[in-house]
């Protein structure tokens, strides 16, 4: 019975079965976390001194101060304008871009070019794009609109392009067989198959762009974000809170509308 005694000891299988590899991973992760924490110079004195500042901050934040309402309103309207214009531009340009980024429609060099654009536009966070455009074109909603349209195009080019790649080729073939030219083949063979996705993505895009349009003002690209940044700089935290509340409200309302509309489309 001695041989069976070892089998009565039961242990759960580890996530990583090889014990050497498991311990190597654990040690490496721990070592990394310790190194990174150390590298950040997290000294407790500084953390502690942050606490009274935080208390003071919250103290000055409440109650929110809505007295600059006209300024807030102007910022909100500008954000809305930026979102609408950039969304319109990007959903129009997304049509040729996503056709170009779809392997089954596009020719090789157009495909590679479109894909390269999509990768670049998707890799940079909107804020980063915004600050470059602000440096190129100056402050205001114009660089903001460009930023939103640029990042939105990356998003649409990828998702709509993939939708086009997944269409039923038979329907396209049938329209080609009628002798229709390239444009009409897209119109009858491709467009009906991806139209619901296109409309859904467009609404989602408005949602994303409105969200981003409330932020990119922080680097001077127009919209309510500029007012928020100024309020912080002038230590007017009660005004900042008021603006923040308005931003959160806009974001939530738009999220609600967009999910309702997209739900109805399906």
């Amino acid at each position: 019975m001695s041989s069976s005694s070892s089998s009565t000891v039961w242990k759960r299988d580890h996530f990583i079965k090889n014990p050497f590899l498991r311990w190597t991973v654990i040690i490496l992760v721990t070592a990394y976390v310790l190194y990174a924490l150390n590298d950040m110079n997290l000294n407790w004195a500084r953390m502690k001194s942050g606490l009274p500042r935080a208390v003071d901050f919250f103290h000055r934040m409440f109650p929110p101060d809505f007295s600059r309402w006209t300024m807030i309103q102007r910022g909100v309207l500008e954000s809305l304008q930026m979102a609408i214009i950039s969304t319109t531009i990007s959903i129009i340009l997304a049509v040729p871009l996503s056709l170009g980024a779809a392997r089954n429609i596009s020719v090789r060099w157009v495909y590679l070019l479109s894909r390269a654009f999509v990768v670049v536009a998707r890799s940079f966070p909107p804020i980063l794009v915004a600050i470059i455009f602000v440096k190129a074109f100056g402050f205001g909603p114009f660089p903001g609109i460009l930023t939103l349209a640029f990042t939105a195009l990356g998003f649409m080019g990828k998702l709509l392009g993939e939708a086009i790649e997944n269409i039923d080729p038979g329907q396209v073939e049938a329209i080609r067989a009628t002798g229709a030219n390239w444009f009409k083949v897209q119109l009858y063979g491709v467009a009906p198959q991806v139209l619901p996705r296109y409309v859904g993505l467009s609404i989602y895009l408005l949602d994303i762009n409105l969200r981003a349009s409330t932020i990119i003002g922080i680097v001077g690209a127009g919209g309510i974000g500029g007012a928020l940044f100024n309020a912080f700089h002038r230590y007017e935290y009660d005004t900042a809170l008021a603006i923040l509340i308005v931003i959160i409200a806009i974001v939530l309302v738009m999220e609600f509308i967009s999910s309702k509309v997209r739900g109805r489309l399906q």
Partner: peptide, 28 residues
């Protein structure tokens, strides 16, 4: 959850820079 999600990281950044001063701690 809602507050955390609706406030952009840049705004959180502005707030924590007030608390901890500029630097990686505010970023984290």
């Amino acid at each position: 959850v809602v507050t955390s999600r609706s406030v952009n990281e840049l705004v959180w950044g502005l707030i924590f820079v007030v608390f901890f001063g500029p630097g990686a701690v505010a970023g984290i």
